[in-house]
């Protein structure tokens, strides 16, 4: 079976500006995400997670290597027909209401009026924004904005979801709800690729994980296999991989 996401020797270098030197953000990264799995893309801040996702979505051009979605090169807009994307920190159009925003994105996918009505109603319910649906976004809290983001990512009923730190900045309750949502979407058969640096939540929802640091792949595998192999929990593996040494015994 074809991989949903396929990265082969991906390399991304940001050109330096003025006195800033060029920055190698992703180096020789190869990964595959299989259909129907929840894939956790882990790494400390600045590891290159967002950059990798930006390549998958065509925002950033790879300097080398190859990136494919459903077997199609990411530069082809068709590759984005079946995906949903939740970006990091986005301030959605302030002058619109949640309902209007979803209607806007539905139009882009060419949904008919009745299709989009049905879809929007279901999504607003799913992310618990039905009450606030007719209020302008500028009156929303951060958590509510994040839920608008989740709803827009699901507007086309995508097969693959790419979520960039979906739980960052949320309170514990909000985090739990996002986790439940991911679980639910997985049960519907969707493939989910999400980045995070919160390890507790990753362990409970992910089938497989990859840990990157400084743009390089350090560890990849099934969560259960990794735990068995290293004989410790994911957090220890993570800290070990990114070179954090526990206080030395003196």
């Amino acid at each position: 079976m074809e991989n949903v996401v396929q990265l082969k020797n991906l390399r991304v270098e940001y050109r330096g500006r003025g006195s800033q030197p060029a920055k190698l953000a992703v180096n020789n990264l190869s990964l595959a995400v299989h259909a129907g799995e929840v894939f956790g893309f882990l790494g400390p801040n600045g590891a290159g997670k967002t950059t990798t996702m930006n390549v998958l979505l065509g925002f950033v051009n790879a300097t080398g290597g190859e990136a494919r979605l459903f077997g199609v090169n990411v530069r082809d807009p068709i590759a984005r027909q079946r995906i949903g994307y939740l970006p990091e920190l986005t301030y959605y159009y302030k002058f619109l209401t949640a309902e209007e925003i979803l209607r806007f994105y539905a139009k882009i996918f060419g949904l008919t009026q009745s299709e989009s009505n049905k879809r929007i109603e279901a999504l607003l319910k799913l992310v618990e924004l039905t009450e606030a649906a007719k209020r302008p976004i500028k009156s929303y809290s951060k958590g509510m904005q994040q839920r608008v983001g989740l709803a827009q990512a699901l507007i086309n009923n995508p097969d693959l979801l790419i979520l960039d730190e979906p739980t960052s900045g949320l309170d514990p309750l909000g985090r739990m709800k996002v986790r439940q949502l991911i679980q639910r979407l997985k049960n519907e058969g969707k493939t989910i690729l999400f980045s995070s640096h919160e390890l507790g939540e990753v362990e409970t929802v992910c089938d497989r994980v990859a840990i990157v640091d400084k743009g390089e792949l350090k560890v990849e595998g099934r969560v259960t296999d990794l735990v068995a192999q290293y004989q410790c929990d994911l957090e220890k593996i993570f800290l070990n991989v990114v070179g954090y040494q526990p206080e030395s015994r003196s």
Binding site: F59, P77, R80, T90, Y93, I108, N156
Partner: peptide
């Protein structure tokens, strides 16, 4: 600036 260009271009929009 508001980063709405990202969810927009993540749709099948050229």
């Amino acid at each position: 600036e508001n980063r709405t260009i990202f969810p927009l271009l993540a749709k099948p929009v050229t």
